[in-house]
Nucleic acid binder design. Structure first.
Lengths: 242, 242
DNA sequence: CGGAACATTGATAGAGCTCAAGGAACGTGG
DNA sequence: CCACGTTCCTTGAGCTCTATCAATGTTCCG
């Protein structure tokens, strides 16, 4: 059974801007169905020319790029509310892959209708551009992190950022949030080796700043972590849902 | 004297898509003037809420982020045809700074008209989104480079990428292109120390792969460099001019 | 000529990588 | 119910790459 946009659970979350009746009707038409996928399966492949675009409804995943020799860089985590496939939509092909880490539910849109969206729904088109600009902003921050920070700083940055995103989605319980990723994923996100990722995590645990076990991330001292991250961490802002 | 959009020298370059008469007229109205700035001066500051947006017409610059303790990450080079200020346009404030490395000439647009562009010029709105997606793609590639590659690989990647961008703009003469940046800028781009940047550059020189002196970058063996870069380097594609 | 900005080079130290091994948790099949 | 394989996490040892420190060279300009 397909979720109706009007009842979309994400709309109830504060961080998403409300749509007016008209926009809602349009999105409902734009929406072509729902896709449920298992954990570990691939949503979109780098280089693919997918006819479909998605918005994550439930579950978590990863965006990543693969180098020719197999090295992998995780570009971002995928959380509910994230739009997937913008690159394929405007550039014709995906520049990274997207895979599900947990089971996921995705809203499916038809790429061919993207152009009609631009013509008839300028607000929604603006929102799309906004989403792209936000992603660009995030990637710039990630770039600064990998380029300038050491392992402890990177990990503090990465985990706080993730935690705050969860917070904005109502996934946080006290000082805890879900974290379904492996240490290898974290390593590929932060540009560290698996071994060093593990040792760095240990240091943060021993300093009583956080714990990470059984898929749960707990921040015992967020302030100290923000201090370590050396980058001003801005609150997650209200954003359009696509 | 202000360049007329119809005579814009950039329009003659193959890499930019042609505008039709209507679009051209709109862009001409959108354009509010030209700004000439000296080398070393700042175009936009991180955090600034600029009422103006720009397109680079001539000259080269840098986009960069500054960390609280002064470390700096160059996010990208700015070349003619690049749009500057999209983030301020859609998000309200710049997330990185832009500074001129050489003297520059910029087209000036009024940010307040951006919304009218979305409403009345869906093609141009689409182009803007396209530009944002391209930048996102580039940043993803840069992230993979800093996260996964060593110094030699990073430098090969960075310099080939830059060379190819110059090539698409007709700035290449044989195997040479202008490179007005300091080694410190390159270091801050690649996430390396100045000293190591210098030594890595020396290695590439000694292997006869390139030279870099007096503001001129020469690629003696582009194929070998591409080999080193370990990332598939795609040709620069035709793109909209904004 | 003196100073400033940038490039270059050598020496040393340390952060992070690789290799290697072992442990814990879990599912599967006999 | 136990043996076994698989996946992931953990830990130690040694080595490499890159950072830092320090000094010198070069060019340009006032």
């Amino acid at each position: 059974m397909v979720t109706n946009c009007a009842n979309c659970p994400l709309r109830k979350i504060d961080v998403f801007k409300d749509l007016d009746r008209d926009e809602l009707a349009y999105m409902q038409r734009f929406k072509h169905g729902e896709l449920k996928i298992d954990s570990q399966s691939t949503v979109l492949m780098e280089g693919s020319n997918s006819p479909q675009l998605f918005t994550a409804l439930k579950g978590m995943g990863l965006r990543y790029k693969t180098l020719e020799d197999g090295r992998r860089q995780v570009v971002n985590f995928v959380l509910p509310g994230d739009f997937i496939g913008l690159q394929a939509g405007v550039m014709g092909e995906m520049k990274h892959s997207v895979e599900a880490t947990t089971p996921m539910v995705l809203c499916v849109f038809d790429r061919s209708e993207l152009w009609s969206l631009f013509k008839t729904q300028p607000e929604r088109a603006f929102d799309l551009t906004w989403a792209a600009a936000i992603e660009e902003h995030f990637l710039g921050e990630a770039l600064a992190t990998l380029g300038q920070m050491d392992a402890i700083e990177r990990m503090s940055w990465g985990l706080i950022r993730f935690f705050m995103r969860c917070e904005s989605l109502g996934l946080v319980d006290g000082d805890r949030c879900p974290f379904p990723y492996r240490q290898q994923d974290l390593a590929d996100t932060l540009g560290l080796s698996l071994v060093h990722t593990n040792k760095t995590l240990m240091k943060l645990r021993q300093r009583q700043l956080l714990s990470l076990e059984a898929g749960i991330l707990t921040l015992h001292d967020p302030e100290a972590l923000k201090e370590l991250a050396a980058l001003e961490i801005e609150p997650v802002v209200q954003r359009p849902l696509i």
